[in-house]
Simulated scan of single mutants.
Amino acid sequence: MSAHPDILVIGGGMAGISAAALLAEEARVTVLEAEPHIGMHSTGRSAAIFILNYGNATLRALNAAAYPVLSGRDSGVSFLSPRGELLVAQAEEMDTLDAYLEGTTGIERLTPDEAQALVPVLRTERIAGAIIERDAQDIDVDLLLQSYARQLRARGGAVLTGEKVQSITREAEGWRVETTQNTHSAAIVINAAGAWADEVASLAGVRPIGLQPMRRSAVMMPVPDGVQVAAWPLFGSISETWYAKPSGAALMISPADEDPLAPQDAWPDDMVLAEGLYRFEQMVDIPVVRPTHSWAGLRSFVSDRSPVAGFAPDAPGFFWLAGQGGYGIQTAPALAALTRDLCLQGESGFAPGLLAALSPERLYQSAD
C-alpha cells in the first residue's frame, strides 16, 4: 500500500472495487471499507442477472457498454451463464408490457402457452401477454468482485477493511479522511459508499444528491418433488410486483419491494414477503410453502433513477459513484471505465449525452 495514495475510494462494494481496479493501472489507489469484508451489503445480496433491456435509456447504454467485459469478449473470462428473463402480463398490465417494449432489442412476444412451455407452473388463464429476453444471463457476482479485487492488488492498490469514515476535510492539496483506524490523504476522493453516499458527502461538506435507499427482499422457497426448475428463466410480473429465479433446486422469490429506508443493514419485513408470495401464488399452480430463509438489501436511487458518476461541481476532487439502484452489478464495468477516464484524463470516450445524464450536476440543477 502506498503511504500517499493519489485516490481514496470510500466503499468496498462492486462499484468501488471495480473502479479502484481500473484506476490502479495508472494511479496509487486505496479503498476504505467500513465492514470486515468487501461486498457485504448490496453487492452480496443481488439477484445478479444481466438484462440488456433493463432500466431507462441511460442504463441501457451502460448495460451495452458493460457487456464486453461481463461476457468475456475483452478478456476471455466470462462472468455470465445462460438464464433468460420471462415477463408475464395480466389483462390490466398490457399497456405496461407495450410501454416496456419501446426502445428494446432482442425481445420476443410469447403466447400464454409458449410462456408456460418455458415455466410449466405458470397459469395460462391468468396471462394476457408475455415476453422473453433469451439473452438475459446470470452474473457470477463473487467471481466478478474477486476478479476486480485481484486486479487492484496486483497493480499495487490496497483494500483496508474496518475503516469506517468519521470525517472528511478539504485541504490545500486534496482531502484528509479520518476513519476509525487511520488518517488518509489523497487528491481525489471517490464516494462509492452505496446507501451511505449522501452521509459521506455530508461529512465532506458536499451537497447531497437526494439519494434514497429502498429495501428489496427475497426468500428461498423449496418446490415440490419432481418439479425441475434449473432450466427455467427468471420469470416475473411486467409491473415488477414479484419475480422468481431458479437457484439450485429451489426458487428465489422476491416481492420486488421498494420500501424507503435510512441507510442500514436491511432486514425483510414479514408482511411485505407474505404479500409478495401471495401475488406470486396467484400466477402459478404450485403451493407456496415455508421458505428456508429470507434476506433483504438496499437499492439506492436518485430522483431520475439513473446512476450518478462525476465530480461534484461544488467540491474539486470529490467524485460521486452512487445511485446505481438495482443495476449496480451489471453496469459496474462501464461505470468503472467512465470513472477511470474522468479521474485520470478529465474526459471520456463515452457519449457526451450519457456523461450529462450521469453527472451529479443534473440533480443540483433540477433542485434549484
Rank of each mutant, 00 (worst) to 15 (best):
D140P: 04
A337H: 10
A66I: 02
G328P: 09
T179S: 01
S237K: 00
L23G: 10
E163K: 01
Y364M: 15
P246S: 05
T180M: 05
S237C: 13
A193S: 10
A312R: 02
S42I: 11
V141P: 05
T161S: 10
T105E: 15
D285P: 03
R28N: 13
P82T: 00
E85C: 13
W320K: 02
R362Y: 08
G248T: 07
R305P: 07
K245E: 10
A158C: 11
D113I: 09
D304T: 13
L62Q: 09
V308T: 14
Q116T: 12
L143F: 11
S46D: 11
R126C: 13
L62A: 06
C343S: 11
G72N: 04
I329W: 02
I38A: 01
P36I: 07
P222T: 12
P333Q: 02
R45Y: 09
N53I: 07
Y54K: 01
P255I: 07
A312L: 10
A195Q: 04
S217L: 08
L277N: 04
P255S: 11
E92H: 15
M1V: 12
T105N: 12
V227Q: 11
V219Y: 07
A357I: 13
A89G: 11
L234Y: 00
S239Y: 01
L277Y: 02
P82R: 08
Q116Y: 00
G349Y: 04
D140N: 12
A230H: 09
P307V: 11
A262Q: 15
L145S: 08
M271P: 00
G297D: 07
F350A: 15
R362S: 09
L335W: 03
P36R: 05
G16V: 08
G210M: 12
I10E: 01
R207I: 12
V119E: 04
A244G: 08
M220W: 13
G226N: 12
G174Q: 03
E102P: 03
D98I: 07
Q228M: 12
K164W: 02
A296M: 06
A66W: 01
I131P: 04
W320I: 08
M94A: 03
A192S: 08
D6M: 06
A230N: 06
L354F: 07
T104R: 12
G12M: 06
D74A: 12
L22I: 13
E35C: 01
P360F: 05
S2C: 06
R299Q: 11
Q365F: 08
P360H: 07
C343I: 15
P287E: 06
A117E: 15
C343R: 00
Y243F: 14
A274K: 01
Q330Y: 00
G129H: 01
G44E: 05
P208V: 14
G297F: 01
P233F: 02
L62R: 10
Y243G: 06
T169K: 09
D259P: 03
V302K: 10
R362E: 07
R73H: 10
A230R: 14
D6T: 06
S78A: 03
